[in-house]
Write a protein that binds this DNA or RNA. Structure first.
Lengths: 228, 228
DNA sequence: AACTTTTTAGACAGTCTTGTCTAATTCGTC
DNA sequence: GACGAATTAGACAAGACTGTCTAAAAAGTT
């Protein structure tokens, strides 16, 4: 209910393996039940640990929650950056390569455990406790997005794209990639591999219609117009 | 914890005004605190009503929650349809008209009380209790989106747009309109009027770059290419 | 093997919440 | 004003949960 004082995370004590297993279990429980509904006994049981050990490691429920957020944030950002490093800087077939990249992004950051958990935690507590997610905002959207924007800018500079505002293009790319995933995601449903790749392909196609090289767009358009 | 049996909503009893004020208060409390964290006494106090009256009207906490979901769903869909009726069917300046439409959509469905509440409720309970939101899925995305798609299809037929898959275009339009709003939305921040309109304008510009009439796109592109 | 740290099980007080019950009061309507 | 329905305040039992404490067991180290 408070988080008033700086929500320090307790310094590592005891065995790190248990510490991590507690955080993993707590993440699952907090996401399933919400902060108020989460039960420390359940966390302990799910972590295969006694309740007292949970308290030894993390002090109290709020500190445990803060530790979970920090942990998930870190892993999520790491994963995002790792996917980012597979961006097609020298594309052979830009549309195909971007589609593959979009699918990897989906798989890692949206359907992945960490991504889902982080999103749920933010939705549940972001409004009431924005402090907890400041790290994420700084490192996540703040850095990942601008890194993606830099990649797009490079593609544009190399003549593969026509982009005036790379940051905007990056955000719109991510939004388009999410279009078909959002609703199923909300209800815990999954998309088949084919659906995912079809969705990614549609997103990339639209993105390229908007940001593809002008002369190519012009050529394609003229061609189609002539046909009609 | 259950919602196992069909979560019937109690038939209206007592004074409708109080009934509604209870639902309004409950909506606010459920959204702030989550289902588990919500306190019936608090709902009663916020509604200006005694606890017993809450129970008289809505049976128990779960039925109250179901009633809140039903209420918000209905109002949210009504609002969406009402905004939809302002779609620019005979646009004078397509870009400007679509931008205004996008802003109205934002104002009504995203920043509005009902929209925020519904989104939070879905995020909090959608995975655990999808039954509760089936009405929304059927009437919301299912109907509003396809209505929007129909509007786009008409614009395309009239020669204002070049769209092969109107449903997809509608979904992508909504996604683009949301790009800049999502993060601030998560943390309860608001965007100034100017920021909102700038965001809407950017979304519409990209949308039209992707779906604008081919011959116009071609003309613009050729022009720019020639300049360079 | 001796010693220290960590973990465990369980009990425990204190708090909070839900949902029910009762008796008194107010409201709406005829 | 009189009557029945709706509302109120408050008490209440039953249960759940947090966070602490203790004594014993287990694990890890030298």
């Amino acid at each position: 209910m408070k988080f008033r004082t700086s929500p320090d995370i307790l310094p590592p004590r005891g065995h790190p393996a248990k510490r991590q297993s507690i955080i993993d279990a707590a993440a699952a429980v907090f996401c399933r039940e919400g902060f108020a509904g989460a039960n420390i006994d359940l966390v302990a049981a799910e972590a295969g640990v006694s309740r007292q050990t949970v308290y030894n490691h993390h002090g109290d429920k709020e500190k445990l929650f803060a530790a979970v957020v920090a942990d998930i944030t870190e892993r999520c950002n790491a994963r995002a950056f790792s996917v980012l490093s597979t961006f097609p800087d020298n594309p052979e077939d830009l549309e195909a390569d971007l589609t593959v990249f979009a699918m990897r992004l989906n798989k890692s950051c949206i359907w992945g455990r960490d991504g889902r958990f982080l999103a749920k935690l933010i939705h549940a507590e972001g409004e009431r406790h924005p402090e907890l997610f400041e790290t994420w905002r700084r490192e996540g959207p703040g850095r990942v997005w601008s890194a993606l924007a830099a990649r797009f800018a490079r593609l544009a500079f190399a003549g593969h794209l026509d982009i005036d505002d790379p940051d905007l293009a990056a955000r719109q790319f991510l939004a388009l990639v999410n279009v078909d995933l959002h609703i199923p995601w909300l209800f815990g449903e999954t998309l088949s591999e084919e659906e995912q790749s079809a969705s990614a392909a549609r997103a990339v196609r639209t993105f390229l219609r908007a940001y593809g090289r002008k002369c190519e767009v012009a050529a394609n358009a003229l061609e189609e117009v002539h046909e009609a």
